[in-house]
Amino acid sequence: MRLRNKPWAVKLVQDHPESVIDRPDPSQKINWSKRFADISKPLEIEVGPGKGKFITTMAEEHPEKNFVALELQMTAAGMILRTKLAKDLSNLQILCADAANIASFFDSHSASKIYLNFSDPWPKTRHEKRRLTYKSFLQKYQTVLQENGQIEFKTDNAGLFAYSVHSMNNFGMHFDFVSVDLHNEKDEIVAANIETEYEHKFAAQGNPIYALHADFGVK
């Protein structure tokens, strides 16, 4: 979902290069040891975090981990940055770049988890390759994730969910958790779930939230 352009976001991003990596050269790996105070912490990445409610909440609740928000839209990056600064989240970095280049920005097998929350469904068949659960993206995630790394995926779009299950299954992934109505799961699962802005909106409209956790098994 494209956000309305906010001129303040561009200036905020430009004023905080210590927190945002703006459109880096994909031919060079990023030295994350210079971006985080403690690089030994587990690294988790959210691809397409939107306004950033999920990733900023995760960073706030889990100071024992490092987080990267990989977001293409400058306005969204600015919104995430504003929250990061307000909450002084030193364990969160923002990478303003195309997710298609994710394997270029991280060392192989360096991340413990990748989150895909309410990604654009790209419903037209001719746009299949743009879906974040298309096989070429899965291959890149496999490169970035550690051997026991996991993808956590949520959507309100039944078509994208069905496609993603099929795509991941064909890729040989293992499913640790699958739900077609996340908000009506067991209490402990619901309590552990951190909502995104879109998730809250969609669920309030009575839409079921689909979710899965999957890994690549032994590489």
Rank of each mutant, 00 (worst) to 15 (best):
S164N: 04
E152N: 11
W122H: 07
N170R: 02
D156Y: 06
V180N: 15
A158H: 11
L182T: 03
L145H: 01
Y198D: 06
T196V: 14
I151K: 09
E185L: 12
Q142I: 00
H183E: 03
L182Q: 12
P123Y: 09
K154W: 09
K201V: 02
F171W: 10
M173I: 03
F177A: 01
L182I: 06
K129I: 07
Q205G: 03
A192L: 13
D176T: 04
Q205A: 09
M173T: 04
H200F: 00
G172A: 14
V178A: 05
D187Y: 14
I151M: 04
L145F: 00
N148E: 12
K201F: 10
F175T: 03
D176E: 08
T143Q: 14
V165T: 04
Q139M: 13
E197R: 10
N170V: 01
S164Q: 05
E197T: 05
H166T: 15
V180G: 14
A158E: 04
F177D: 01
V144N: 02
D181R: 12
L182G: 10
H127G: 07
V178C: 03
A162W: 01
S167I: 06
N157E: 02
I189A: 12
D181Q: 13
R130D: 08
E147S: 15
A162K: 04
K140T: 05
K154M: 11
N193H: 12
F171R: 10
E188P: 01
A191F: 12
Q150S: 14
V180A: 15
N148K: 09
H183N: 10
W122Y: 12
H174L: 12
D176F: 00
T133P: 00
D187V: 07
R130I: 14
I151F: 07
Y163C: 09
D187F: 15
I189C: 12
E152C: 14
K124Q: 08
T125C: 03
H166N: 15
F202Q: 10
G206L: 00
N169T: 15
S136K: 11
L182H: 05
T125S: 11
E199W: 06
G172P: 11
E147G: 12
K140P: 02
I189L: 13
S164W: 05
K154F: 09
Q146Y: 07
F202L: 13
R131E: 05
L138H: 02
R130V: 10
N170F: 00
E188H: 03
Y198K: 05
H183T: 01
L145Q: 02
K124H: 05
N207H: 14
T196G: 09
D156I: 08
G172I: 13
P123I: 08
T143S: 11
I194L: 09
N157R: 05
G149C: 08
R126W: 04
K135H: 11
